[in-house]
Design a protein around this nucleic acid. Structure first.
Lengths: 246, 246
DNA sequence: CGATACGTTGACGGAAATCAACCCCGGTGG
DNA sequence: CCACCGGGGTTGATTTCCGTCAACGTATCG
């Protein structure tokens, strides 16, 4: 009998925010063999071109998927938080077409692909749930695309804070509309497709309108309704089990 | 014994551009019950908010996934061509968070979810292949995001033409670097996040540089290397079985 | 034949990039 | 102890890309 791995708890919590698990499925998840590692900020986890044989579960801290252009400009595609498996796709796509790295200091767990595959064979419904996870990632990508293409800098940033509030709340990291936000303005610019200077001006605007506060790596949403209205935020795309209100 | 459905051939061809199928898998695909329909241009296939019970295989023509903002601005997330199943995600995500519609006149085949699920149960490797398909869609979304965030209008448009050439070639719709392109400049703008006016100027620039020709719904790539260089195009993200050259 | 959609072009304005300082703060080392 | 340094944040001045407005051309179609 394999040992139970309490490290899986964040994953279970996240999966239960979008679906319901049976006891057998929870146990199977808790038995997943994994190797835990601590990372400093800005460390690579997987690099473009790699052929990974394991995937990575975020336990603590923030990670990001990103890619560089020839001219050195970076685009961040997604931020990953507790409970996310950012490179689940490597289970079925051999070569990495982007990078994955820590943004803040992180604790991550590595799970061998063979163990994931075995789990998917033994618990076919879990396979579907993981598939669904990657489909929701796709939905988040689409929304991010719409923000990049059709929203102003201010609207886009407001949208990002709305998304973070809901995603972090789903894994219990929001208290009184405040959440950890260990991301620099440079990194935020790389995510929003903006220059650092303009990120700064945009943050200033959101602060000035009394919508958010941001100090010492913590963001507080001061006016949820105002932020939602400005961003035209609709949480459907996150596909939570039940709609959450703030 | 179920009848064979030759309509599945485009799907088989596309799947074989990224993987290898066994005879049993090919037969199982050919037996998939489906209902074929012809659509005029600009018709809805599935709408935001729907709970579909079937998914849609594109046989001929172009379709697009898109969504509107409150102010009426549209963002197109993806164009879908022969062999694509644009709403495969509805197999595991109940509610549509975006729209799917025809761009040109189309022939599509509808496949009931129950038949897809049965196929996935009987041919587990096909389930993984479909999963992989949706993961590649995700990779395309990421690349599109980088284009929206970090490329100029010219580079972005060049990138789009590069992608179309390879994807259409994979399903046999490219001859002498020419391919059908039944997309208006308005629609192209909705995909690139640009105004129609600027789309026009950008097309003019690509034409002026001798990179492409575009007339009567047909695009010809006149200078593949030049286009690739301008776009910084790297086809890895399409995850074809073997690298294609032009 | 006008109606309509699509494409093209010019003039103007605005949002965000770029360039360039400067500040604050927490190391770190002489 | 203080000087120095570097990373992050802030601000102003200028430039650039792209959006908006407006007009006009051209093809297709009822």
């Amino acid at each position: 009998m394999d040992a139970l791995h309490p490290h899986t708890l964040p994953l279970i919590r996240k999966l239960e925010s979008i679906t319901t698990l049976t006891e057998a499925e929870r146990v199977a998840l808790l038995r997943l063999p994994m190797q835990v590692r601590s990372l400093r900020a800005d460390q690579d986890i997987v690099r473009e071109g790699d052929h990974p044989s394991q995937c990575c579960l975020v336990l603590e801290g923030f990670a990001a998927s990103y890619s560089f252009r020839g001219n050195g400009k970076r685009q961040i595609f997604a931020f990953h938080i507790t409970g996310d498996i950012p490179d689940l796709q490597s289970l079925h796509i051999e070569v990495m077409d982007h990078n994955l790295g820590s943004v803040s200091p992180c604790k991550v767990a590595f799970i061998q692909h063979e163990h994931m595959r075995e789990l998917c064979r033994n618990q076919p419904r879990l396979a579907d749930i993981f598939w669904r996870e990657t489909l929701i990632d796709g939905a988040i990508f689409r929304t991010w695309m719409q923000c990049l293409g059709r929203r102003s800098a201010t609207e886009h940033m407001a949208h990002l804070f709305c998304e973070f509030l809901l995603r972090l709340r789903a894994v219990g990291q929001v208290e009184n509309n405040s959440f950890p936000f260990p991301i620099s303005q440079v990194e935020l610019g790389d995510a929003l497709g903006l220059s650092t200077v303009h990120v700064n001006r945009t943050v200033k605007e959101l602060r000035g309108k009394g919508l958010i506060a941001w100090e010492k790596h913590t963001v507080t949403v001061l006016d949820w309704n105002g932020l939602v209205a400005l961003a035209e935020f609709d949480p459907t795309y996150l596909h939570f089990k039940r709609r959450e209100a703030a």
